[in-house]
């Protein structure tokens, strides 16, 4: 197992009290595998990703049973030992290409800085590696691009550069936090294909964070669906797409346009919004928006086994097939 996360909880201290951003989240990633974390904005996906690199803001409190990366215990590893992992063996692609790059340094400078932080190479050697990578992520005439500043490049190019940056040291695990959200659809497809290719070539594990189930169906090996800071369903991609067990997952799937079945009726949307994370009650968090809510939903339940390696947090699991 490349990465194993068990019982991860994150609390944020805010002015209005403690906010429970992530609650008892568990998942794991194997070598060469793609895990998709899916959910609406504000469900705790990005903060989960940041916590793996131990880059949480100072106001955040993290507790977990285990966070292990290979044989390293990321939970207790001192900061001085974490830094050499970041960007090197454990890397991250951020979602906003407009702000993720330093406006005052050239692209080349920022790419080479990553390699220089982890390997004893000359800047010239690092620049060669940067050129190589830019070609790989589909940027023609890389020598020229390296001399440019972020503001001189388009959003698509910048996102490719952010991806190249994360790949400079050929990490074992890459966390991609909505890497294509800010881009238009054609570039999205390109970059997705590219990530998949690079992943196979390097044998990386990948955590892909998104709210777009259309993307998930194309790349995921396994899926974790998050809602209001907790896992509501987890399992192999095929199982979840074929037999979604949680009403939230079903609702998400209903909200995905299916190009092979053109339809006249409008896309389904999920009524309501994610409940406030400040005041958690003892009921199922999805209860207020769930079309199938019953009185028994007043009690929280743990993840229930649906099938092999497939769990869902719903009281109706098991009662499903009889309906």
């Amino acid at each position: 197992m490349l990465l194993n996360v068990k019982g991860l909880s994150i609390n944020l201290a805010t002015q209005r009290g403690t906010l429970s951003a992530v609650q008892d989240v568990s998942f794991h990633v194997d070598k060469g595998e793609t895990l998709c974390i899916v959910g609406e904005s504000g469900c705790g996906k990005s903060i989960t990703a940041l916590s793996l690199l131990r880059l949480l803001p100072a106001s955040a409190r993290l507790t977990a049973e285990t966070i292990s990366f290979n044989d390293l215990d990321l939970l207790t590893l001192p900061e001085a030992d974490i830094r050499p992992l970041r960007g090197n063996r454990l890397s991250m692609i951020f979602q906003d290409p407009m702000s993720a790059l330093n406006p005052l340094h050239t692209v080349g400078r920022q790419l080479t800085d990553v390699l220089l932080a982890h390997q004893h190479v000359t800047r010239a050697k690092a620049a060669e590696r940067a050129c190589e990578l830019l070609l790989k992520v589909g940027i023609p005439n890389p020598e020229e691009r390296l001399q440019q500043y972020p503001h001189e490049l388009s959003g698509g190019l910048r996102q490719r550069i952010v991806i190249a940056m994360a790949l400079m040291c050929e990490p074992e695990l890459i966390i991609a936090d909505e890497p294509t959200t800010a881009l238009d659809v054609t570039i999205q497809a390109d970059l997705l294909r590219l990530l998949k290719e690079l992943q196979q070539a390097l044998g990386m594990g990948m955590i892909f964070i998104t709210h777009d189930l259309g993307l998930v169906s194309r790349i995921a090996d396994r899926i974790v669906v998050m809602y209001a800071g907790e896992v509501v369903e987890a399992g192999p991609a095929s199982a979840i797409f074929e037999h979604p067990a949680h009403p939230y997952t079903r609702a998400l799937l209903g909200a995905v346009p299916d190009p092979s079945h053109p339809r006249m009726e409008p896309l389904e949307s999920i009524p309501g919004t994610v409940p406030s994370l400040l005041s958690r009650d003892k009921t199922c968090h999805f209860r207020g928006r769930c079309p199938m809510a019953q009185d028994i939903c007043n009690n929280r339940i743990s993840l229930q086994t649906v099938g092999a390696d497939h769990q869902a947090r719903c009281i109706r699991v098991g009662a499903e097939d009889s309906q």
Partner: peptide
């Protein structure tokens, strides 16, 4: 607080840099 600093940290650049 800027995003590019978070990127720099996530890439493991030394704190001094």
């Amino acid at each position: 607080e800027a995003d590019y600093i978070r990127t720099a940290r996530a890439m493991g650049l030394p704190e001094r840099k």
